[in-house]
Write a protein that binds this DNA or RNA. Structure first.
Lengths: 226, 226
DNA sequence: AGAATGCTTCGACTAGCATCGAACCATGGA
DNA sequence: TCCATGGTTCGATGCTAGTCGAAGCATTCT
């Protein structure tokens, strides 16, 4: 009966609307203060504090005290991955949002998923990388392919140092908008970093949307989709 | 604030212990009846029914009516993926099950799964019955093998009358402790009945554990494992 | 037809938990 | 030292949702 880890415990943590809002607000990988999160969740400060304590207790969040502020953030990519997975199911189950709306459209196109790129663009890129054997799926795992090291070196991403880290370099992350995988892991992070560093896209504050500039999109497509 | 799909809604579905147990019980991809799930979750039948209705409403489960049984199963791989993701986080967060404890050990060894035997003993017996062609796997189905009728007749189980019933005589049931199959169906029930009737084992009330007596275990092993 | 089994619905009870106001601690600045 | 601001704790309140017994359908076996 009671087998694996206590799944109900942490699912119920996400199950409260206020907490769910907080978690999604943190999905961009940033850190927010308690008051900001209270606002985001639409509850009073005491209530928010109580929720944050619970999330901390469940190790879903980490906190960093800075002066008299306390910055809360997701405790890791694993948590972000879980939220995405839940979103995926919810998208199919939910009371179909009548019309997607413009904001949802850009979200669908390109958004930040914790620390890497998600959305249509990310999925297309993922497929292309697979097709060119820059990365390869090996059963459930994803690894750098034969053409990988050279490709990334040419755009200034050193896969050797990435691989040395403890964090998995390549991971598949399932999208809730499209039903397909995109690239997570430290390589996914590196690619997002490059996109922002090259100013191909910018991130409106307080949102997960990634807005490509017209020339930025061209550059992105040329590099990853051709 | 409210952007993505309603994640809290479905997270709270998984957030109830009873429902979480049901979902994990279905993680093998199999289908179980409402009563089996009630047992698995440790709640009464009405309660289970209510939970199942909610899970259906959230589109996490599908149901297939077969005769007077209703077989529930996960609605898709996406749901399974979500459960896995949650388990992953829970494993890191949870209060590390320090030691399995004696109760878990006996559960792993032999327990009742609805109306038949499960656990290590059941899996070993299943393998042995297959090896001796007392039963045979035919693709997904399981049937009585050439040596079957004689074998069971010798221990007082009349396979002819069992086969006359509408209920499937042989069914494979997947174990959570070991990830392998054991025997369910009316034949599985008959075997469990015999074990209890011969007093080879007894069932502590209020538990699924099946406790073999030392001579009982000997007899069982001689009959099914030699 | 009648009995038995599997499952769902109804009704009542209870417990847990989210919520907020007010008081309380901590840090930073005057 | 004294205020101002960001956060947490406490206490009281109200609502939601899980729980089970009993009764109600539906299907199948005799």
């Amino acid at each position: 009966m009671k087998e694996g880890p206590d799944i109900a415990r942490i699912a119920s943590l996400v199950g409260d609307p206020a907490r769910a809002n907080m978690l999604t607000a943190l999905m961009d990988g940033g850190a927010l203060t308690a008051s900001e999160l209270a606002l985001e969740a639409g509850v009073s400060l005491p209530t928010a504090s109580s929720h944050l304590a619970k999330l901390m207790d469940g190790k879903l969040l980490t906190v960093a005290s800075q002066g008299r502020h306390r910055y809360y953030a997701l405790s890791g990519a694993e948590v972000a991955n879980m939220i995405e997975a839940i979103s995926g199911v919810a998208a199919h189950s939910g009371p179909r949002r009548a019309r997607p709306g413009p904001r949802d459209k850009s979200m669908r196109e390109a958004r930040v998923c914790y620390d890497h790129l998600a959305g249509d663009h990310a999925v297309a890129m993922f497929d292309r990388l697979i097709a060119q054997e820059i990365i390869v799926r090996d059963d459930e795992e994803i690894r750098l392919g034969p053409a990988g090291q050279g490709f990334f070196a040419a755009i200034g991403i050193d896969t050797a140092t990435l691989g040395a880290s403890r964090r998995p370099m390549c991971r598949a992350c399932l999208d809730w908008s499209v039903r397909r995988s995109h690239l997570a892991g430290s390589l996914g992070t590196a690619i997002l970093d490059k996109i922002l560093a090259e100013k191909w896209a910018r991130r409106p504050t307080g949102s997960r949307v990634v807005e490509f500039t017209p020339p930025g999109r061209k550059a992105f497509e040329k590099l990853f989709l051709s």
